[in-house]
Amino acid sequence: MIENSYIEINKKALKNNYEFIRNLIGANCELTSVVKGNAYGHGIKNFVPTAHECGVKSFAVFSATEAKEILDTGLDFSRIMIMGNIDNDQLSWAVENDIEVYVFDQLRLSNIALQAAKQGKKAKVHIEVETGLNRTGFNRKDLTKTLEFIRNNKDSVEISGMCSHLAGAENIANYYRINKQIKRFDNLEKVFQEQEVTAGKNHLACSAAMLNYPKTVKDLVRIGILQYGLWPSKEVKMAYMVKNKVMEDPLIPVLSWKSKVMSTKIVKMGEYVGYGNSLLAETDMRIATIPVGYSDGFARSLSNQGKVIIAGHRLDVVGIVNMNLCIVDVTNAEEVKIGDEVVMIGEQNGTNISVASFSDFSNQLNYELLTRLPNDIPRIITK
């Protein structure tokens, strides 16, 4: 079957990015790969084995469904950690398969302890504490009771870590708030010591925090966007490059998104292109139709402003992006023909469209654009 588009995952780029990250965190800090959101659009089933080949054996996801996708690869893992949603009827499965689970309220902690006791096993939990994001996590006043419960149920609950989330470490506007969170986290570490409870791996840093706030690098770092060769924000990238006097980007994007030209034709001057009347041909035009539209993650907001690369030319998307296709102006690229490779994200003949520039056109964050790439687009590993 011929696919409308496909995604390439560059293993060499991934190795480069992990080397960059490991040099920053040091040998004594565990690198945990965050693969929620279908591995940020890269595809869990394809990405996790590739990361595993690069030496990463610790993974974090949002849901039990994602954790099962990792488990189903059949590889050996040092850690699979659910940071978000897991229903009560999935807790028994998590305990049985040594899946580690964030707990941020007493109900979840009690339920997983109960399931572990039934199996005669220990549930592996990460105690999430509230430091100022005000989303999920134990407040300080509740933490003492939580640790007392764990001491009283030490045969069914084992603490694998203490953790918290930061409220926007990629933006200097949050500097005061982030530093306040770091201080709170450090103070909450002391509560574990006072209660004589081992906290396991302490972890606070995400990609942005690892770069902007090095003191958040503790026993483990949860790295998402950076491993994929993308920066948390332009601000973070600029700060790193200025601080380290680096001229070339040390990261290499892992993902490329490609398609092929479906058809070409001439549109006469004075005719409209595509649906509606958003684009009038002011001269005779030659257009190419690409079988990629908003149902594929190529946003409708790219109408009359998106870019693609064909035959080494950066070309304009014209007219309205449809559900399953878009139209490109190839008037000045006479060599373009049916079957030619089309690059939506990536590089061709020295010309590049980055995820960042692509998301600028569509008014989406890097994270949002990538995670909206449908699961059914084939992912191909390249060396």
Rank of each mutant, 00 (worst) to 15 (best):
C54G: 04
Q106V: 06
S263V: 12
G132R: 09
V328L: 12
E53D: 04
V292A: 10
G84Y: 04
L302I: 05
V273N: 13
G43S: 05
F192N: 03
S5I: 04
N17V: 07
F20H: 14
Y294C: 07
V61G: 07
A51Q: 08
L114P: 00
V236Q: 12
A117Y: 00
Y294D: 01
S259H: 09
L24W: 01
E248T: 10
V242S: 04
L143A: 04
D329M: 11
F59D: 05
C326M: 14
I127H: 04
A116C: 04
V321S: 10
G74S: 10
D340G: 08
Q119S: 09
Y18D: 08
K307H: 06
K45D: 14
V34I: 14
C54M: 08
Y6F: 09
L211D: 03
A205S: 15
E19N: 15
G312Y: 11
A199P: 04
V157N: 05
E130H: 09
L226M: 13
E194I: 06
K57H: 15
H165D: 04
E158Q: 14
Q181V: 08
A27G: 04
I2L: 06
V254T: 15
C163F: 13
N202T: 10
K45Y: 03
I127W: 06
A199S: 11
D155L: 05
A39W: 12
A116M: 03
S295T: 14
D142Y: 01
L279R: 15
E3R: 14
N375E: 14
E189L: 15
G55H: 06
V103T: 07
N277T: 10
K11P: 00
S207C: 04
Q115H: 00
D296Y: 13
C163Q: 13
I338R: 12
D340W: 01
Y228I: 13
V328F: 08
N88V: 07
W231F: 01
L133S: 03
S156P: 00
L325M: 13
W93I: 11
R79V: 00
V342Y: 03
S256Y: 03
S207P: 04
D186S: 13
S5Y: 05
A60R: 15
R135L: 02
D105F: 05
Q305W: 05
A311T: 14
L251A: 09
A173N: 13
I86F: 02
I44D: 10
N153A: 12
A51T: 11
A67F: 03
M210H: 06
K337P: 00
S5T: 10
V273T: 15
N4T: 09
L133Y: 01
P49F: 00
G276C: 03
N38D: 15
N244V: 00
G270N: 07
Y272T: 10
V101K: 12
T382F: 01
D340N: 14
A288G: 10
W231L: 02
R379E: 05
D219Q: 15
G229D: 09
T146S: 03
L226H: 13
G26H: 13
G37A: 15
F138V: 01
A199L: 12
L109W: 01
A205M: 10
H165G: 00
L302H: 12
A167R: 08
V35Y: 12
P232R: 13
Y240F: 03
R372I: 07
K145L: 02
F77A: 08
S263E: 13
L373H: 07
A333I: 12
T331G: 08
K234V: 00
H165P: 02
G137K: 06
S362M: 07
S303I: 06
D142Q: 11
L188H: 11
P291I: 11
F77G: 11
V330E: 07
